[in-house]
Simulated scan of single mutants.
Amino acid sequence: MKILFTFYNPSGGMDTLNRIRCEALQKIGIECHMLYKFDGNGRRNIKHIKTHICSTNKDIEDLLQRENYDAVIVCTDFELLQKIRASGYKKTLIYEIQGLGTMETAVEILKQAEANVTKYASALLYPRTSHLMRLLEDFFPDKKHFSFDDPLNMDDFGYTSYPQKKYCVIAWVGRIEANKNWRDFIELGYQLSRSIPNLYLWMFGDMDLNEPGEQKKFEEKIAELGIEDRVIRYSNVPHEQMADYFSMIGDSGGFLCSTSILEGFGYAVAEAMLCRCPVLTTDSDGVRNFIFHHETGLFFPHGDIGQAVVLAKQLMYNAELRKHIRTNGERYIKVRFTVRKYTKKFMKMLGELGVK
């Protein structure tokens, strides 16, 4: 069997998901390829997976005819569904959604996608995230739906002990854009820095993908608050090294802060937990899959920086709570989000769709 996974570019959570599931499926004898319309810095993370970069109709048609895939999974790019069918591809074509930003953005994208998905897609695939489940069932009631958890790579990604930092780190992962809500993180960091002199804010992302307008506002905000020296920005860290960073952040006495408005899954949160880095997060829906308040992490209300400060200090200074959350978080991820569970459900989906 041969399968193709597609997305716009190799970056963020989709880069992680595609690599993990391709590696897992290849271990059970399924040949997997990836197709991206544009190249990206995440390409350096890809090893031992055949990856194609092309966007023209001719290149896509040549690829499909040459490789003769048994199934193609198209994430988000509804226009690609039409191109694939127009090339003459008649086999299983699955439309996947992993996250669409804010609810307003999600509704707008699905309105644009509705005709192509209805006409060309064999089925829908998405994580068990309530707002995605509700939206997709409303838009596509007559399609076959498959919804199950995304996997994490637990063989090569996890906690490692390092010498403890002489300062405390709180971290944030994402693009500088409205939905990731960087403002709440910066405001929280500023408020905490007033009573924690050795606090640093580490921010991870791909600077090439930041929204220019938001980037300008970000620069102005940290200058206004006078915390430029505390904010350390890391761009395009190789994925396997993020486990080391998460481990160091957890051992520094700090935490990962996620401030997103809406997420489909939230890989950074799950990966931090896997590395014993505790998490303070807004309720962005997708993180409900692995954050349980005071058990595996802590929630704070969107925009309530006062409450975020209170909970952050509990997480940093209540040793018993901190140990409880770190231990439970790591254990929960290891039990629920295995590649074995994912491949089993993925292959069951293909079987139900008639892929032999």
Rank of each mutant, 00 (worst) to 15 (best):
L4R: 11
F5E: 01
N9E: 15
N18I: 14
I20K: 00
Q26R: 15
C32W: 01
H33N: 15
D39N: 14
I46A: 05
I49N: 05
I53H: 05
D59A: 15
E61I: 08
D62N: 02
Q65F: 12
E67P: 10
L81Q: 15
Q82W: 08
Y89F: 15
L100A: 10
T102P: 02
T102Y: 08
T105C: 00
T105G: 00
Q112M: 12
N116L: 06
V117L: 07
K119P: 05
A123Y: 00
R134I: 15
R134W: 08
E137C: 11
F139G: 06
H145M: 05
H145N: 10
N153P: 05
Y167H: 12
R175P: 13
E177G: 10
E177T: 11
N179L: 05
R183S: 11
G189K: 04
M203A: 12
M207Y: 12
I222L: 06
G226Q: 04
D229M: 09
D229L: 09
G253N: 02
G254K: 01
F255E: 03
C257W: 05
T259K: 02
E271F: 06
E271N: 11
L280P: 00
F300A: 10
P301N: 07
P301V: 10
Q307D: 13
A319R: 11
R331N: 13
R331G: 06
T343Y: 03
K356F: 14
